[in-house]
Computed example of a mutant assay.
Amino acid sequence: MTENLIRLTYVSTFQPDITDTNIDDLVAKAASFNQAQGITGVLAIDKDRVCQILEGPKDHVERLFRSIQSDRRHHTVTEIDTRPIDTKSFEAWGMVRRDMIDIVIHALA
């Protein structure tokens, strides 16, 4: 039996002063933290717009999302979907940054 896994998807907007370097640093730190928590997913970015998919143990993903909601680097954090899952779709990805179009292609494949 699988552990209590969920997939949470949200969108937000980065603050105007966030740079590509800031984003790269954020992704690197998040990748290490998320791996330790059993969380995988993807961070899709199009200019200042963000779409992130988080997958992992329910309590860990929900705790991370609460932290994201209070993170001042972005605003208008809007949860799009949360659902239980049997397996992770992004297990091999870890936590990576992709262009928005890459995520659309992955979703349609």
Rank of each mutant, 00 (worst) to 15 (best):
M1S: 10
T2Q: 11
T2C: 11
N4S: 06
N4P: 04
L5E: 09
T9P: 01
V11D: 00
T13S: 03
T13H: 08
Q15L: 03
I18N: 03
T19C: 13
T21R: 14
N22H: 14
L26M: 13
V27T: 08
A28T: 02
A28E: 06
A30N: 00
Q35V: 03
A36V: 10
G38D: 08
G38P: 06
I39M: 11
I39E: 08
T40F: 12
T40Y: 07
L43V: 06
I45V: 10
I45D: 00
K47H: 05
R49T: 01
C51R: 03
G56Y: 07
P57M: 02
K58C: 03
D59K: 07
R63G: 13
L64C: 07
F65S: 04
F65D: 11
R66E: 12
I68Y: 03
D71G: 06
D71S: 01
R72G: 05
R72V: 06
E79T: 06
I80D: 03
D81L: 15
T82V: 14
P84G: 15
P84W: 13
D86V: 11
T87D: 14
T87V: 10
F90C: 09
E91G: 01
A92Y: 07
G94S: 13
R97D: 08
M100F: 03
D102V: 10
I103V: 13
I105C: 08
A107E: 07
